[in-house]
């Protein structure tokens, strides 16, 4: 189930981006999305630890480039979100390899899927509502976000220091 979901979300993301680029006559970009999907699939089959990270970064970059090229937001969000899901499921699948036979794997999977589904739905609904709301992205919003970002970074630095 996890394996299937990993491959499914990975190709959903790659094909969503590919389709959007193909619609915009950006054939090279489309092929890049497909190649990334194939590369990621190969990495998963070979149990390469770093491939999901690289694949996720590359697909997210393709989504950003797509938005710059004024491609439909829905397809780009689908690409980035599926890349994130596939990244998470790939890592989870690799960790599950070490689970013992006595471990309740079904429960572990259920909890993981539930949490992931909630985050996905929440993320999708928030993103969609932001787009539907169509609020003007003014300078005030930018300053608020910048301050939030700085606060986030400072929290992150504090956390890293504590970890060290």
């Amino acid at each position: 189930m996890i394996k299937f979901s990993t491959f499914f979300t990975l190709w959903m993301g790659a094909l969503a981006l590919g389709f959007a680029y193909q619609q915009a006559d950006l054939t090279i970009h489309m092929w890049v999305a497909v190649i990334i999907g194939a590369f990621w699939t190969w990495g998963l089959l070979q149990f390469k630890k770093q491939i999901p990270r690289i694949g996720m970064v590359l697909l997210s970059l393709l989504s950003i480039i797509g938005l710059f090229n004024e491609l439909p937001f829905g397809w780009m969000l689908a690409g980035a979100l599926n890349a994130l899901l596939s990244y998470d499921l790939s890592n989870f699948y690799q960790r599950l390899r070490f689970a013992s036979e006595t471990e309740d794997i079904k429960l572990l999977k259920r909890v993981h899927f539930t949490r992931l589904s909630i985050i996905t739905l929440l993320g999708l609904s928030l993103s969609t509502s932001v787009i539907l709301w169509q609020a003007e992205f003014s300078l005030e919003w930018a300053i608020f976000l910048a301050l939030s970002g700085i606060w986030g970074i400072s929290l992150l630095v504090g956390w890293v220091r504590r970890e060290a």
Binding site: L84, L126, I131
Partner: peptide
Amino acid sequence: GILFIALVSMNGEMLALAIPLALY
């Protein structure tokens, strides 16, 4: 990266793209 690009380009769609990742 997405947040920075969104702020620089004042692009709301770009910002919306970062929401699922931030929630995750």
